[in-house]
């Protein structure tokens, strides 16, 4: 066996035994992604609030008031605010999240989680946990419509007021190559969050077509923290982004802004 293969298999053995997301263990916990909050004079964020428990049980018509718990975090993962928003009785409520029009959302908020009620519903979901993988729509002030993206990965659990980060990280540093070649002219903004319980150091590498990589950002993400970094892509050539960290999956949400168009997807 070649030395490189042996090394790869050894790394594989170190990484594989753990999953991207840890089981919350506490029965009745509910799970949410950590969604990017773009909230200023330029950006608008809309969350599609659905009756997740009703969709599971097969009855989406509400007979009593139910609420979802929206929790907002700053870039350091500190909880800033909490709001109970009523679950729509008609199926869908598009919740507009903006700190300028809603003072209860701090202007420092950069992400949010949405936790549904679980235990009260008496859902028959066995050993599973109710999860909000969400659909969030983003628009710029000059956008004609919203660009939607679903949740990136399960990040937090909630039970009786306690929030836990349930993402895993590995023992060794690894590379994640964003699976989107950057093409200009466009502005790219990458939202990266830390779903693990501990701080994680991150290096962001930018590579050209000949795969010469240069470090463009280096930062530490605290647990539940998030950061946006930007790449201006002025030419039409291709380039790539790599995330070097101990994340199992260092996958960002990508915002591509070009003209009046906005394209948002997980990378």
């Amino acid at each position: 066996m070649k030395k490189s293969d042996l090394l790869r298999k050894a790394k594989y053995a170190l990484w594989i035994p753990r999953k991207i997301t840890r089981n919350p263990k506490t029965k009745g916990s509910v799970i949410s992604d950590l969604f990017p909050l773009r909230s200023d004079s330029q950006w608008q964020t809309h969350f599609e609030l659905l009756n997740v428990a009703g969709l599971i049980s097969g009855d989406n018509a509400l007979t009593q008031d139910k609420y979802a718990r929206f929790i907002f975090f700053d870039g350091d993962g500190e909880k800033l605010a909490e709001k109970l928003i009523s679950i729509p009785s008609s199926g869908r409520k598009t919740v507009f999240l903006n700190s300028e029009s809603d003072p209860s959302i701090s202007s420092r908020a950069s992400s949010f989680a949405v936790f549904h009620e679980s235990s009260r519903d008496g859902l028959d979901i066995g050993e599973s946990f109710l999860a909000e993988r969400g659909y969030t729509g983003y628009s710029l002030s000059n956008s004609a419509i919203r660009g939607y993206v679903h949740g990136n990965f399960d990040s937090l659990s909630y039970k009786d007021g306690k929030i836990k980060a349930i993402g895993n990280k590995g023992l060794l540093t690894r590379l994640y190559t964003v699976q989107h070649p950057l093409r200009g002219p466009a502005t790219y903004e990458f939202f990266l969050s830390n779903p693990t319980p501990r701080p994680v150091s991150v290096k962001v590498l930018h590579g050209n077509e000949s795969k010469k990589w240069s470090e463009i950002e280096r930062f530490e993400l605290k647990s539940k923290g998030s950061r946006i970094f930007r790449v201006e892509k002025e030419d039409e050539g291709v380039s790539f982004i790599r995330i070097r960290s101990k994340f199992y999956l260092g996958r960002p949400v990508v915002f591509r802004i070009s003209g009046r168009g906005l394209d948002v997807f997980h990378g």
Partner: peptide, 12 residues
């Protein structure tokens, strides 16, 4: 959209 299984995590 997600398949219905995405409404829950872990378990079967």
């Amino acid at each position: 959209t997600h398949p219905p299984a995405s409404l829950v995590l872990f378990g079967n």
